[in-house]
Every structure is written in structure tokens, then in C-alpha cells.
Write a protein that binds this DNA or RNA. Structure first.
Lengths: 219, 219
DNA sequence: CACCACAAACCGACCAGACGGTATGGAGGA
DNA sequence: TCCTCCATACCGTCTGGTCGGTTTGTGGTG
């Protein structure tokens, strides 16, 4: 179990909140898991990189697995919150489905680029979690996909999205792009996150639009 | 180093070529690596599953890493061979670029579905290989992508593929689908491999086609 | 302000077990 | 006799996790 962060009252002026044990440990764990991999990173290496001792770490985390799950937890809740927010805003404004979907897609790509190390760990280490937590991750991913799917279904019902390809395939088609980002995208590369988000989203949308509705209007 | 398979001369009639140590070990390793993961599978478990002893296994393989690399080696050379073959045949027949690309895409999706366990290991365990072998895998993947890219560039030069999205993004867009297959596709699911191959390929091609094939003098 | 009591934070030596890999030697064909 | 193939016992190392004990911070009390 991850205990809540308690206030470390006295703040030494030489080191601000950098001293927080939990944050330091999680930061180091993310860095090491994403570069060396979960299984090949020892708890010793993590605590050394975090500048704390094993005793301190195990005071706040029950197991190495906790460190890994914290990465999943953060990513899952963040992405879900953003999805809900965008869909809610779009629905309230009465936006067209395609516009809502575009906003969702661009946002998840952008967010995933901001969380590249997390994404690396996410796809690579799912099977290292305990069985219960694997199930939990699976459950929450399904919930996310279900929300995404209802957007697609709304679009097909309105006739703007094609209906000759199963939604499961369309969903996989899009999220493949998202999950593949850590494998190729580099922040120091030629394209900005926003550009890639726009490009991948546009590729996806063009693929799923109903054949009849060819819209010349472009941005 | 993986020693070449030597002829196991005496074939006991109760077990035919099932006895081959190398095959049995590699089969078991693939099965276990793809379900439990490389790091969490011990050599003991592998040899037990293969029905051999550790001594026998280490007689043919120098290390656990060899077992892992064999999976990569097999997949890389197989996919590369098929790509070369299809491109060569298409070029010889003078097929249109889009037809060649379609054939390539459908084939790699189909093949990847036939090798789902290998694909699982491929994306998940790359960082567990020795540094040299990681570089080797990277090198051969790049070679594959380069061939793929020249198809795309041919298409853009001919004006049938769009030129407003970097080829690197287009390549990532397609191979994301391929690498994501083990995460969602099930052979027992509703779609056949050929169907999915056709659908994903069509989604991709529709995304990358030049906006107006009838419309010259654009930009 | 001095002092105490107490709990939370933290330290680091230690452990039991598992791991990848090896050393040794035997069986059996050539 | 030699060599390949393989079985078995074994080894050194490293791991995640524990635990008794110490330090540090804090609030109450006089």
C-alpha cells in the first residue's frame, strides 16, 4: 500500500521539496524501469539513484511491485480524467462527433508524448505486475476503450464514420499509434508533439470516415 | 553462439523428431517467454517444460540470452525474406506501387498474426538482450524500414501518396498496427487473420493516399 | 523556555532462497 | 580410445524483503 504523502514540515533551505522520499524514489524508479527494465533493476539501484536507503524506501512502499504499479496508476487516472473532461466539454458545447474525437485523439497522443518513459514501462512491464493488478489495469483500459468506442458508434450511427470495419479493429488501429510512440518518437527529433498528434489523428480520421462524406474543408 | 543443428542420428520409434533437444527447448522458451516473460522465466522451468535437462540445454546453447535472440533472429529473417520476395515479384511484374505496398502490408500483418507469441516477446523483451544484440536487432529493423520507406517514397514521387506527412511518421503509423497485434488480436475472436490484414491495410492506405488523385497542380 | 514522552522516519546489516551457469563424469557410437 | 551428448551435483552471486535499533520532530507540561 502506498501511504499518503505526509507533510515534511521543516524545509531545509539547501534542498527544497527535492528531499521528499516518495517522489525521489518514484522518479528514480521510473527512470530506471524505462531504461533498464523492471526485472533488471534492483531495489538497491533504485534507492541509490534516489539518494535514500532501503529502509526509508520500504517505510513508504510495501514492495517493488508498488513502485511499478504507481506508474500505471498515475497514467491510467490521468488519461481517463482527460478523456472524460474532453468528451464532457464537447458534449456540452454540442460539438460534432468528429471534432470531439479529433480533440480526444490529439490529446492522448500529446499526453503520451509527455509521458514517454511511463509509456515505455506501460507496454513493456504489464506482465510483471501481480495478477490482481494486471487485472486492474486491464479493467481500466477496457473502461477507457469503452468510452472511446461510444464515440465511434455515435459517429457510425450519424453516418460520418464507416461501419464496414468492426469498432474493435478501429480502436486497436488508433491505440496502436499511441502505444508505439515510445518506440520511435524522440523529443529532439524533427517533429513537435503537437505536429505528430495532428498528423496521426488526421491519418486515423481519414481512415475511418464514411466513404461518402468527403469533406474538402481542411484546416 | 547457437550451434548448428546436428543430425541426431538414432531416432527412437516411440518419439520421432519430437526428441530434438534444440527444437523442444526453443519451443518451450517461446511459450514461457511469451506468457510469463523473459526475466521471470528460469532456465529450470524451460528445460522442465522442454523435457530435457539443464546439461543438455547448455550443451546446445551458450546462455539464456541465446534462447531469446533465437526468437528475434527467426522473426527478423523471416519477415525480411518475405518483404524482399514480394517487392521483387511486384517490381518484376511492373505492379503499381500501391498494389505492391498493399501486398506487403497484408503479408506482414498476416505473418505477424501467425507469430503472435513471437511478437509478444519481440516488443516486450528487446531490452533484455545483450547490448550488441539489441544493436543488431535495431540495425535489421532499420534495414526493413528502409525498404518499406523506399516504397512510400516511390509512391509520393508518383503522386499517389501524400507528401505532407514525413515518411517516418507514416512508417511508425503502419508498424504500430503490426506491433500492437499481440495485445488485442485473438485467433479465436470474430475476425480471421486475412480479414484483419485487409482491414488494417485498407485503413493505412486510405490514410496515406494523396488527397486528390484527379487533382494536379496542388500545393 | 526546558524538559519529557512518544511516534514517525529512517538506517543498514542481515537472511533465505533462487538464479544462471559450470564441473565432472558416464554412456555409447565410431 | 576418442568424441559427442547429456545427467547430476554443485557454486558464487545477487535479490527482494526484514528487523532491531537509532535519530528526528512534535506537542504537552510545568
Amino acid at each position: 500500500m502506498i501511504r499518503p504523502v505526509q507533510a515534511v514540515a521543516t524545509v531545509k533551505d539547501e534542498a527544497m521539496r527535492t528531499m521528499n522520499v516518495q517522489d525521489q524514489v518514484l522518479r528514480a524508479a521510473l527512470e530506471l524501469f524505462s531504461t533498464r527494465g523492471y526485472a533488471t533493476t534492483s531495489v538497491q539501484e533504485i534507492v541509490v539513484a534516489a539518494g535514500v536507503t532501503k529502509g526509508a524506501m520500504y517505510h513508504y512502499f510495501a514492495s517493488k511491485d508498488d513502485l511499478l504499479f504507481a506508474i500505471y496508476e498515475r497514467m491510467l487516472s490521468l488519461q481517463k480524467a482527460r478523456l472524460d473532461e474532453i468528451v464532457a466539454a464537447g458534449t456540452e458545447r454540442g460539438d460534432a462527433v468528429e471534432d470531439v474525437l479529433r480533440a480526444v485523439c490529439e490529446d492522448v497522443v500529446t499526453t503520451s508524448i509527455e509521458l514517454l518513459p511511463e509509456g515505455t514501462v506501460f507496454t513493456r512491464s504489464q506482465h510483471m505486475l501481480t495478477a490482481e493488478r494486471q487485472a486492474e489495469v486491464k479493467r481500466r483500459r477496457r473502461a477507457y476503450h469503452d468510452d472511446f468506442e461510444s464515440l465511434l458508434l455515435r459517429g457510425t450511427k450519424e453516418g460520418v464514420f464507416r461501419d464496414d470495419v468492426p469498432t474493435a479493429v478501429l480502436i486497436a488501429h488508433f491505440f496502436s499509434d499511441v502505444h508505439y510512440l515510445p518506440q520511435w518518437y524522440s523529443p529532439t527529433g524533427p517533429e513537435t508533439a503537437a505536429e505528430v498528434a495532428g498528423q496521426l489523428t488526421e491519418l486515423f480520421l481519414r481512415g475511418i470516415r464514411a466513404a461518402a462524406s468527403q469533406d474538402p474543408g481542411k484546416d
